[in-house]
Design a protein around this nucleic acid. Structure first.
Length: 439
RNA sequence: GGACAGGUACCGAAGUGGCCAACCGGGCUGGACUGUAAAUCCAGUGGCAUUCGCCUUCGGAGGUUCGAAUCCUCCCCUGUCCA
């Protein structure tokens, strides 16, 4: 999989700006502690972001913090990706309206492994100057004794302070309340920051806007225990113009793992970005420079129907996450799936392109002689739930076989209509495909 | 425990003995338009059947009737009020 390394040289030539200015221009700064900008402009900073092992893969929502770390590294600072092996066992109440079920240790181990693998693609762990680092807070949280923790960390926080945090306050006011376990979460995260500060000189923690309270708690802890400055910066919530949750589609979460979200779907997710969001997403999720993005913004303004910004966004992000080869496949598939003609395609191409489309198998005998009726084909491929629905579909002109509309509900599909006797592509409407394999 | 109100298709909501597979709105699915957009417009939206039509559905179970989502009995559930 591709990493950022191939492109990092050209970005360095444009680093007259400080990282903070870069973040600011990219609209990545939602809240920030005083003096952070100055620190980023005058020092080499070590910064960390935590990733929760709630699933075995990161999703596109995590791309903003990931890019923040990657950008930070390109500006010569040192990124630390922290995976929450310890805190993951507790559960972060931030942004959650009710208590979460605890993950089992086994499940969490599994999740950690997946997430670590993904993070490695975005950060450079080999460079001599400022290599990235990956840490797991289970390492220190797993072994600290409760008494030590209460004496060393707990003593620095008043309950009053903790109760005043938004994440806690909201839950206190809710009916279900908050467990002592989750209430403690903030202190654990504060302690993480302290540990990273002591071990690696980490002086900046970043995160999503829901992490603001936790981050401040950590900065406060460092200030009180070590009398040193620690900074915090949080990103805005990534929103979309449609008002739905970013990173979700009808078919669910858009994951970075190609096994969970195919590169084709991943590509399509970005390509379908609303005009109103696309410039912001280019800033958030790509390495394109300011002039490039401004150019794309102008094109979007003048000729939105060309969707150049969306195309570029989809290309850049898909390449970054899945690599050049997968990008090419995703583009080819998009062309066929939305372009029409598929006559020239070989069965191998078809299988490739329709890889993540639901498929069904029918015996060769069904296509021999008279062939199979369209209605039956629609039902048996799973395109429609009943024959009645299939009939209505054909009557309304929404049924296609191999991308050709079938207007007659009595039409029959024979071997001659199939793709070299190997497959048939059934389509319902504009983009609802089913692949029928012939055996 | 008592008094009302109510349970209709994915959701909301009409219907209060035959014209009800069930008005209407939303959602969803097609189509037109388009930029794989938004908005708009059109159609469809229980199953089977090429047609006639048949079958299953209105909280559940029985019953009355030629005929019920609609009437009766019992039961279950929900909301509001009283204890």
């Amino acid at each position: 999989m591709s990493t950022i390394s191939s492109e990092s040289t050209e970005a360095e030539t444009t680093t007259a700006l400080s990282l903070y200015d870069e973040y600011a221009w990219r609209e990545m700064v939602y809240h920030v502690t005083p003096e952070t900008a100055e620190a980023l402009a005058t020092e080499k900073v070590t910064a960390y972001i935590g990733f929760d092992p709630t699933a075995a893969s990161l999703h596109v929502g995590s791309l903003l913090p990931i890019m923040a770390l990657a950008r930070l590294q390109r500006f010569g600072h040192t990124p630390i990706a922290l995976v929450g092996g310890g805190t993951g066992l507790i559960g972060d109440p931030s942004g959650k309206s009710k208590e979460r079920p605890l993950l089992t240790r086994e499940k969490m181990e599994e999740n950690l492994a997946g997430i670590e693998g993904q993070l490695r693609r975005f950060l450079d762990f080999e460079t001599a100057a400022n290599p990235a680092r990956m840490v797991n807070n289970l390492e220190w949280l797993g072994s600290i004794s409760l008494l030590d923790f209460l004496r060393d960390v707990g003593k620095y926080f008043t309950v009053n302070y903790m109760l005043s945090k938004e994440s806690v306050k909201r839950r206190i006011e809710s009916e279900d309340g908050i467990s002592y376990t989750e209430f403690t979460y903030m202190l654990l995260q504060a302690y993480d920051y302290l540990v990273l500060h002591d071990r690696y000189g980490c002086t900046l923690q970043m995160g999503g806007s829901d992490q603001w309270g936790n981050i401040l708690a950590g900065a406060d802890l460092i200030r009180r225990m070590r009398s040193e400055k620690a900074h915090g910066l949080v990103f805005p919530l990534v929103t979309n113009a449609a008002g739905t949750k970013f990173g979700k589609t009808e078919s669910g979460t858009v994951w970075l793992d190609p096994g969970l979200t195919s590169p084709y779907r991943f590509y399509q997710f970005w390509l379908n970005t609303d005009d109103r969001d696309v410039v912001r997403y280019l800033k958030f999720f790509t390495w394109l420079t300011r002039p490039e993005i401004e150019e794309l913004a102008a094109v979007t303004e003048a000729a939105p129907e060309r969707r150049e910004a969306q195309r570029r966004l989809a290309r850049e992000v898909t390449r970054m996450v899945h690599g050049e080869a997968e990008l090419a496949r995703a583009e080819q598939a998009s062309e066929v799936l939305f372009g029409g003609a598929m006559d020239a395609l070989s069965p191998a191409d078809i299988l490739d392109i329709f890889e993540d489309v639901p498929s069904a198998e029918l015996s060769r005998a069904r296509f021999e002689g008279e062939g199979i009726g369209v209605i039956d084909l629609l039902v048996e491929s799973g395109a429609t739930a009943s024959k009645g629905e299939a009939r209505r579909l054909v009557r309304s002109g929404g049924a296609y076989v191999n991308n050709r509309r079938v207007a007659d509900e009595r039409a029959r599909i024979t071997l001659e209509d199939t793709i070299e006797g190997k497959a048939v592509v059934v389509r319902k409407g504009r983009k609802n495909y089913r692949l029928v394999l012939i055996r």
